[in-house]
Amino acid sequence: MFKQTAKQTASVRPIPKQRASAAETIVSLEHVSKYFGKLAAVSELSLSILQGELFTLLGSSGCGKTTVLRMISGLEVADAGEIRIGEKRVNELPPFKRSVNTVFQGYALFPHMTVFENIAYGLVIKRFSSIAIKQKVNTMLERIGLSDKAGSLPRQLSGGQMQRVALARALVNEPDVLLLDEPLSALDAKLRGAMQIELKHIQQASGRTFINVTHDQEEALVLSDRIAVMRNGRIAQLGTPAEVFERPNSIFVADFLGVSNFIPAKVHRQNGESVSLIDQEGLAWEGRSRSSLAPRQLATIAIRPQKVRVLHTGFEPTATNQIDTQFVEFAYLGTSVRIVVRLHSGRTLQLDASPESLPIPYQGLRPGDRLRIEYQPGDVLIYPAEK
Rank of each mutant, 00 (worst) to 15 (best):
R372S: 14
R13T: 15
P94Q: 07
G64Y: 08
I49M: 08
E182M: 03
N249G: 10
R366L: 12
E182L: 00
A40P: 12
D279K: 11
L54K: 00
Q51A: 13
R296W: 12
I133H: 06
P94H: 04
V229N: 08
F256M: 11
C63I: 06
Q161T: 02
A41L: 09
R296N: 15
Q4P: 00
G239S: 11
I144K: 06
D181H: 01
I323R: 11
G59L: 09
Q8R: 13
S276R: 13
S21W: 01
A150F: 10
S292I: 14
T139V: 10
D279H: 12
G287N: 00
K38A: 15
F104R: 04
E243S: 12
Q322C: 07
G64L: 05
L351C: 07
S158I: 05
L184H: 04
K266D: 08
S357R: 13
D216S: 04
A228L: 09
D324I: 06
V137I: 07
R226N: 06
D181F: 02
T348G: 02
Q161W: 03
L29I: 05
P305L: 04
L29S: 04
Y107I: 09
G282K: 13
E117W: 09
L221W: 02
L381C: 03
D176A: 15
V32H: 10
K307N: 14
S260M: 05
S43E: 14
E76R: 06
N118V: 11
V177T: 09
R347D: 12
L351N: 10
F315I: 12
P175Y: 09
I303M: 03
R70I: 01
V267E: 07
R155V: 13
R304N: 01
V253I: 10
S28I: 07
I72M: 01
S33T: 13
K97G: 06
F252Y: 14
G272N: 09
A189T: 10
G314F: 01
P355H: 07
P14D: 07
E53N: 00
Q350W: 04
V213E: 07
P355A: 12
R89W: 00
I131S: 14
S336T: 14
I125W: 02
P154G: 05
S99P: 13
G233H: 06
S60N: 11
M195R: 01
Y107T: 02
